[in-house]
Simulated assay, not measured.
Amino acid sequence: MQFNFNSSEPLYMQVADQIREAIFTRIYVAGDQIPSTTEISRNYHINPATVLKGMNMLVSQNLIEKKRGIGMFVVYDAYQKIVDQRRNEFYQQRVIELVKEARRLNISEDELVKLIERGFGQ
């Protein structure tokens, strides 16, 4: 994990993002226990309440679950939830803008598909 203490992004969100990314890259898989709040706070010199706030975001998104007295664990479908969310963001942020720009450039749908295929070929 790496944290940017000078970033405008709050540390608790960075904690959530780092754990989410670790699930996406399959560093943590379904059923894995993630490092404890104490462990993360000690290793990275972050207030435990800040770490807990980030973890609670992931609990509320049903990506990790608390097991009382044991720790935090990755839920069985966390990876797929993250993939689905990222695909939706990709569509919303990139595909829609790509199509808008193609229209402004008078690129037809067929031409755009060929350009995309060309991109995949590289």
Score class of each variant (00 low, 15 high):
F3E: 11
N4D: 13
N4Q: 10
N6C: 06
N6H: 14
S7Y: 04
Q14H: 11
Q14W: 02
Q18I: 03
Y28Q: 07
D32R: 00
D32M: 01
Q33S: 13
Q33A: 14
P35I: 01
P35H: 02
S36W: 04
S36E: 09
T37Y: 00
T38P: 03
E39P: 03
E39I: 00
I40Y: 09
H45L: 10
N47D: 15
P48G: 06
P48D: 08
K53W: 06
K53Q: 11
G54D: 06
N56A: 12
V59Y: 11
S60M: 14
Q61F: 14
Q61E: 15
N62T: 12
N62V: 11
L63I: 11
K67I: 12
G69E: 06
G71I: 12
F73E: 00
V74L: 03
A78I: 08
Y79F: 05
Y79S: 04
K81H: 10
D84I: 07
D84F: 07
Q85F: 08
R87D: 04
Y91L: 08
V95R: 00
E97N: 12
K100W: 10
R104H: 09
L105N: 13
L105Y: 10
L105T: 13
N106I: 02
D110V: 04
K114Y: 03
I116F: 03
E117W: 00
E117V: 06
R118K: 01
R118Q: 06
R118C: 01
G119F: 06
F120A: 10
G121H: 11
